[in-house]
Structures are given as C-alpha cells and as structure tokens.
C-alpha cells in the first residue's frame, strides 16, 4: 500500500478505470440506450411533424438545469475519486454525498416534469413522440436513481476506510457508471429537447 502518491512525468500503463465486468455492464447499457436513440431517429425521420408538435410543448428551462446538475455530479464524483487517491477520506465521502444530492435535484425536477405531462393528459399512447419522450426519459430516470444508489452505497462502505489509494476499484466503478448516466443524458438532452 502506498504511503504517498508520487506524480510521475513518464506515461503510466493503460488500465481500465474500475471493474472490467462493470464496464461490460456499462457498455450493455450504452447499447440499449443507443438502440433506443436510433429508434427515435428512425421514427422522427418518418414523422417529423408529430415530433415537432410535441417538442414545442417542452420547456427548455428545467432540462437545462437538469443537465447542469448531472454535469456537476460528474465533476463532484471525479473530485471524490481524486480525494480518495489522496487519502482524504472525509472530503471524498462528502463529495460522494454531494453527487447524490445533485442527483436528487435531478430526480425532483424530473418528477415535476412528469407530473406536469400526466396532468396535461399525456400518456405513452398519446402519439409516437410522447411515447419516445416518456420512455426515454423515464428509462434514463431509473438509471439516475440506480446511479445514486450505487454512489450512496460506496459512500456508506467508505466509512470503514476500505477505499485506500490503490484499492479504489469500487469507487472508480461507481463513478464510471455515473458518467455513463451523464453521457446518455447529454445525448438525450440534445436529441429530445434541443433539436426541435
């Protein structure tokens, strides 16, 4: 176990950040979302009018804030990993909880968005655009929650000091999952909200 961390000027060996098996899981998730996005593209290409009409009813403010929240969450979880590397356990745990809090912000705003849509009588069967909108954002929403659970779990486990420099696979893995959730949202935000 390293007592101190030294910065090396030379190139470091390539390593998978975190658990390889989890990366396969992350790739699988990217695959599913990818197929979903492509299906959206296909559907939109065949019926642009329905999509444009639906998108016109989407406000941009909340999703933009949501994007900023997730990006900030990625920053804070990256900072948390760095803190673990420097063996600053308390700072690291706090940054993890900050990530969870930012995620909670996303969740709350998203719930508000869904509530608004349901109140307006929009359902999965309203039309193809709304079907995609609700499916994609809800599916992603579930992954945000899973990401929060994973990071929260790591924050709890960290209390017994198990994440020492050199033994950070668990933290890196959790961070990687969160970044995947963020990455997917970045595409989703552009696709569903901005590209109207």
């Amino acid at each position: 176990m390293n007592q101190s961390v030294t910065l090396s000027a030379s190139a470091n060996p390539r390593e998978v950040p975190g658990d390889l098996a989890m990366w396969f899981f992350i790739l699988a998730e990217l695959l599913v979302f990818g197929v979903f996005f492509l299906a959206y593209g296909y559907a939109r290409a065949h019926d642009p009018a329905t999509f444009v009409a639906g998108q016109r009813q989407l406000a941009l403010g909340v999703p933009t804030v949501n994007t900023l929240l997730l990006i900030a969450g990625s920053a804070s979880v990256s900072a948390a990993v760095r803190a673990f590397v420097l063996d600053r356990q308390r700072t690291a745990r706090r940054l993890l909880w900050l990530t969870v809090a930012l995620g909670m912000g996303f969740v709350v705003l998203k719930c508000g968005e869904f509530a608004g849509k349901f109140a307006a009588g929009i359902t999965l069967s309203s039309d193809t655009f709304w079907m995609f909108y609700l499916s994609l954002t809800f599916f992603h929403f579930l992954h945000v929650i899973l990401g929060m659970v994973i990071i929260g779990a790591v924050a709890v486990y960290a209390r017994d000091g198990r994440y020492r420099p050199g033994q950070l696979a668990g933290v890196e893995t959790a961070a990687a999952y969160w970044h995947m959730v963020d990455l997917v949202w970045v595409v989703l935000f552009a696709l569903v909200y901005v590209a109207r």
């Binding site: 599913v32 197929v35 979903f36 299906a39 559907a43 999965l124 069967s125 193809t128 079907m131 995609f132 499916s135």
Partner: peptide, 10 residues
Amino acid sequence: PGYWQWWGSI
C-alpha cells in the same frame, strides 16, 4: 397498446 411495438423491438 402500440408502444409495445417499439419497446419489444428495441
């Protein structure tokens, strides 16, 4: 409902 045609396919 029709959304199953999308969900099921994807």
